[in-house]
């Protein structure tokens, strides 16, 4: 156990936790915006899978990493349009339609992968970027400031989303339509437009999360996300619909996962309890949700479709 508390291992574990947390963070921040407007999207995982595949395929064909990122974002945006039409304009039950989006993403990404790629072929990974001066800080620099660009973007999104939700008219409108759409409507706020835009942003971020995942790994295969999008949805509840809380949840989930992996690599966790230890991140999240239940309040109109008539 003492090997775990050496600086090099702790730094590596922190860096690993940040890498693991990043896709959760981006997707959960996007989902936060959607849920704050009153729209639950259980299709996050499917959107991530589609975006991950198309980002991967783009890089495979063009060798252009940033084009891959752009394609991942566009795919998320397009899925946002589809989900927005289904839920906002056709008032579909959000839970069911989200699952439909997930199933579509799971099946279609696999189909496209089989037809267009077949065998997993590695692509170039996003290169690490050292932040000048900060990366030179002993140990801290290695853990925090030597990552690929999308990891920095993920954490920069936290203050940006916070500012947007708290300090902009659009952010206020999002909260208004998520809490009391009738009142917002009576004050002249377009509930449909606000929710639709929130869905577009949320899905676009899910697209970015999918691209970040596949380009960090440099590979794609069927069901690459392995349910990651559903954890992202749970992290929104964990974070009490606040971007900073969501970041805390994502980091906790990532760091616990990284710690378990590191302890296994050090052979500290015996094989006989390996599977139990692997459940630690999920168990911790469930425990936190139980503790938080009743202490935090979900947007009042979450999952409730809105119609003037």
């Amino acid at each position: 156990m003492s090997e775990f508390f050496t600086l090099s291992v702790l730094v590596a574990t922190l860096a690993s936790g940040i890498r693991l947390a990043t896709p959760y963070l981006i997707a959960a921040l996007g989902e936060t915006i959607g849920q704050r407007s009153g729209v639950l999207n259980l299709g996050v995982d499917g959107v991530m899978l589609l975006s991950a595949f198309f980002a991967y395929w783009t890089v495979l064909e063009t060798k252009n990493l940033w084009l891959g990122v752009a394609v991942g974002i566009v795919v998320g945006f397009v899925m946002g349009i589809i989900y927005g039409i289904i839920t906002v304009f056709f008032h579909a039950t959000q839970g069911i339609s989200g699952i439909g989006i997930f199933l579509f993403g799971l099946g279609f990404s696999d189909l496209m992968f089989q037809k267009q790629v077949g065998t997993p072929r590695p692509i170039k990974q996003l290169p690490d970027v050292s932040i000048p001066l900060l990366a030179d800080i002993p140990h801290v620099g290695e853990a925090l400031f030597q990552h690929n660009l999308l990891i920095y973007v993920a954490f920069l999104l936290v203050p940006i989303v916070t500012f947007m939700l708290k300090r902009t008219t659009f952010g206020m409108n999002i909260s208004a339509v998520g809490e009391n759409p009738q009142a917002a409507d009576s004050l002249g706020v377009s509930v449909a437009q606000t929710r639709f835009t929130a869905i577009l942003i949320g899905n676009t971020m899910a697209g970015l999360a999918g691209a970040a995942l596949t380009l960090e790994l440099g590979i794609f295969q069927a069901n690459l996300t392995s349910g990651l999008g559903f954890i992202a949805v749970a992290l929104v509840y964990f974070g009490a619909w606040r971007p900073v809380g969501v970041m805390g949840g994502a980091l906790l989930y990532g760091l616990v996962g990284a710690t378990v992996v590191q302890l296994k690599a050090l052979q500290v966790i015996p094989r006989s309890v390996s599977d139990i230890a692997s459940m630690a991140p999920a168990l911790l999240t469930i425990a936190a949700l139980i503790v938080l239940a009743g202490r935090v309040k979900a947007p009042s109109a979450l999952t409730r479709p809105f119609s003037r008539h």
Partner: peptide, 8 residues
């Protein structure tokens, strides 16, 4: 879980 395998 490809990401976890990478971290392992």
């Amino acid at each position: 879980d490809v990401a976890l395998a990478a971290e392992a």
